[in-house]
């Protein structure tokens, strides 16, 4: 049998080798941040951007787009982002099996359940609210689900970045809802949409 594994180098290089291999594995199993975070960034930047142009900050729309149009763009881009993320997660999960895959699957179902319930609650309530508050209900509750699940994801995988991404979403969402529909759309587009895009590029560059 060939043993071309060569003797390991000195202790210092050996430790470096171990660390490099560990880092490469973690990177590989975590998936591509551009795939997992990027599409959400695009969805929120464009979707909330359109909503913001529709609401305006002082109640006067900046551009003539209906609320229906902006909400449809936001929702369909979010569905697309969810699909891309699901693809990224599936591609990651075929690499391993065991407890981690089960964990990932349960987490995926939690997203699905959260978003479904968001739609049910918002549909039930929306007829009772004036248009601006109605849009804020959809946006606020959906971002609540996103924020909670990112924080929970951080807890599941002991990933501080993910946890603080969730904290960030919760904070922006909370302030936005308090300030009203126009501000919520503006803050979500810039801080969450732009933030996720910038963050995914930064994480990818950092490797």
């Amino acid at each position: 049998m060939t043993d071309e594994g060569d003797r390991a180098p000195g202790p210092e290089e050996t430790l470096k080798l171990i660390e490099a291999q560990r880092a490469a594995t973690v990177r590989r199993l975590k998936g591509d941040p551009l795939l997992l975070y990027g599409p959400w960034g695009v969805a929120w930047l464009l979707g909330f951007g359109m909503l913001f142009l529709h609401y305006g900050l002082d109640g006067e729309p900046y551009v003539r787009i209906t609320q229906m149009q902006s909400v449809s763009v936001l929702l369909s881009l979010q569905v697309l982002a969810g699909a891309v993320a699901a693809y990224g997660i599936t591609r990651m999960s075929v690499q391993t099996r065991g407890e981690s895959s089960a964990r990932g699957a349960m987490y995926g179902y939690a997203w699905f359940a959260g978003m479904t319930l968001m739609v049910i609650i918002a549909m039930r309530m929306s007829s009772l609210l004036p248009p601006h508050e109605n849009g804020l209900l959809w946006a606020g509750v959906s971002m609540l689900v996103v924020g909670v699940l990112y924080m929970a994801g951080g807890a599941i995988w002991l990933d501080w970045t993910m946890f603080f991404v969730g904290v960030w979403v919760m904070a922006v969402n909370g302030v936005g809802v308090l300030l009203g529909a126009g501000w919520h759309a503006l803050l979500s587009a810039v801080l969450l949409g732009g933030g996720f895009l910038a963050g995914s590029l930064w994480m990818r560059r950092r490797g």
Binding site: G5, A8, I18, Q21, R22, R97, G98, E99
Partner: peptide, 17 residues
């Protein structure tokens, strides 16, 4: 070196993965 890398990689996985 080669086996060290194999073991280091697998050690990164969760205990039941």
């Amino acid at each position: 070196q080669a086996r060290l890398r194999v073991v280091a990689t697998l050690n990164t996985l969760g205990e039941r993965d």
